[in-house]
Design a protein around this nucleic acid. Structure first.
Lengths: 343, 343
DNA sequence: AATAAAAATGCAAACGTTTTCATTTTAAGG
DNA sequence: CCTTAAAATGAAAACGTTTGCATTTTTATT
């Protein structure tokens, strides 16, 4: 009979496998962690014993010695968001490649909640963590630093970031789309952005947009700068209201979701895009390319960021924390599609 | 100086806290797991010591005794999918309420990959697991059963399911949208569905659709039943091709994503929805309500399913596995919007 | 074939908690 | 204020693995 507590759980332990394979538990452990140090015949015996018993190792017990738990954290503002879910998917599957597991949590754009979340992840002894953006409470950052947990900031690239970052240049993204509209001759432009509070990605994009206004000696009046949540319906509603009183020739949206809402608003109003109104977004989400008209936007490589972040974190704890070139800028591409035209 | 290995990690352990608070480690442990058994003054001292030291408990070490790890698994076909990400978000945040953490993985619609994933989750000693759908390989199911891990199947409701299930009646969803078209007088209907292989949700929906055809003594010819991946662009392309040779008066889509593609195809072709073509979807994804025209579809309460699944799993290991009413059917609502009209 | 070096394995002590059981402290009852 | 029961705390043995060190076995060298 197996030991009491284990058999209660209904699962055999390493010593059961060892007994059945007639080796010591140490060898079984080695078989799993470093197969080539055990001789082929022994290996075969252990393999068989483990299979017969349906043994599954307990990585928790293992990671008490192991310095590493094989688990890596990811904190996003929200999971339910076209662009982050693409990132998450890539991050998770890349971790799987490295035999690591992802622990994920969302703070719902409330940075304060990050402190509880980081704590909870730390209690699970994560080997590293990826945080979206550069804006973070000091408390969790200190907890991570104190424990020497590798951290990367993802999504937004910032050359001056104090922690390694992997992302795109959101300032440039904003600049790109705004410049495109100016190049097409637009001067009466409305800007619709999400709240930039605690959201450095949106903030940088907006700075990029504004930089173009400035360089064109144009003024972005508050009247032409609207705030809108990340929601197609809200964006649509807001746009319909805006268009009642104001008739810009173009709209710059802080992200593609808002753009979708704006385009639908135009369709509802019987306005023609792009003849009556040019629209640009940022992100290039699923659907942006295929809607009618196709959305002119900037493609941000979410998948690539996720993959890079996973690789970076893994290599950080394989080689010891410090990493050579900490900051990684991923490139974006301007997608010129049907939603924009010359005035 | 703290103990060697701990100080290497840079983190204080329970004994450090105990020493500082001048109590035994046992009491500190009790303080965290069962605060009311420790007297207020002691509690205060421990609280202070823990704060001063920046102590964070090691739940891994704890769960060697604890029977429970506080981690619950979720396996989805893919994370990057409007409907699942809503589910995931709800599941995760509900777990957070219960002080549990989510371990998530995606198998990319390859059921075989579930075996490796389940194994990996088991190695992390999850307390329970939610699986999307009813179609699963026997191997992982056995691993779970052998260890008495609570399992729920989510998304699809099936009264005869062998494991507890929480979901909507997908057969009924399919029936509903098809019936709606028939009621509007449509007889020449094209059906576009994702591959139903290993996808019981899609399979049930399709059965529902077919049941309506049957009850109307109509035949759904293979020519009018097309397979399409979960991708707006692909759906759009496919639709444009279909419409070259065939002119149905209505299209039933296996999910809203396909519907979006179909609607965009019509717009690209200059067809009017719903006059020239009525379109129904299933799911009611973000955007479906706000696009032009609004998509007629069936709302499946993803959030509610996620929340229920989390609660169920938690209560399953709080009360011991067996649960009273195992199967939970969540209701859906038919959303009659602008994409459908009488012939 | 004998010896040295290398490879494979075993033994036992960790790892940081929780928990049982024993002990001490506090509260209750007279 | 003494006795007894209850509440709070402590001591030490788990939990299932890994790992340093010791031992045995194999391989290479002469």
């Amino acid at each position: 009979m197996a030991k009491r507590s284990r058999s209660f759980k209904g699962a055999p332990g390493i010593v059961d496998v060892a007994a059945r394979a007639e080796v010591s538990p140490a060898t079984v452990s080695r078989f799993f962690n470093n197969p080539d140090v055990v001789k082929t015949p022994t290996r075969k015996r252990i393999e068989k014993a483990a299979n017969d018993l349906g043994y599954i190792r307990d990585r928790m017990a293992g990671s008490m010695h192991n310095r590493f738990s094989g688990t890596i954290g990811l904190i996003v503002p929200t999971i339910d968001n076209a662009i982050f879910s693409e990132l998450i998917e890539a991050f998770a599957s890349q971790l799987l490649e490295h035999d690591r597991t992802m622990l994920i949590a969302a703070h719902g754009y409330e940075l304060k909640r990050e402190i509880g979340i980081v704590r909870s992840l730390l209690e699970r002894r994560i080997d590293g963590i990826a945080l979206v953006g550069q804006d973070h409470d000091a408390v969790p950052m200190n907890m991570l630093a104190q424990r020497n947990i590798p951290v990367v900031s993802i999504w937004n690239f910032d050359a001056n970031s104090s922690i390694p970052c992997i992302g795109a240049d959101n300032f440039e993204a904003g600049r790109l789309v705004a410049q495109h509209l100016f190049d097409l001759g637009h001067r009466n432009i409305t800007v619709i952005f999400p709240d930039t509070n605690g959201n450095d990605r949106a903030r940088d994009r907006l700075r990029g947009v504004k930089s173009v206004f400035t360089s064109q000696q144009l003024n972005l009046s508050p009247k032409n700068l609207k705030t809108c949540p990340y929601d197609i319906g809200e964006a649509k509603k807001l746009t319909m209201k805006i268009l009642e009183s104001n008739r810009p020739t173009a709209v710059v949206c802080g992200n593609d979701i808002i753009s979708h809402g704006v385009i639908f608003a135009c369709q509802a109003l019987g306005l023609n895009v792009p003849q009556d109104l040019s629209i640009v977004g940022i992100g290039d989400f699923a659907g942006s390319a295929h809607m009618e008209p196709g959305l002119t936007t900037v493609r941000l490589p979410a998948k690539r960021i996720g993959t890079l972040a996973a690789n970076t974190l893994v290599s950080m704890n394989e080689t010891g924390t410090p990493l050579r070139n900490k900051h990684q800028k991923v490139d974006m591409s301007f997608m010129n599609r049907g939603s924009t035209a010359a005035v």
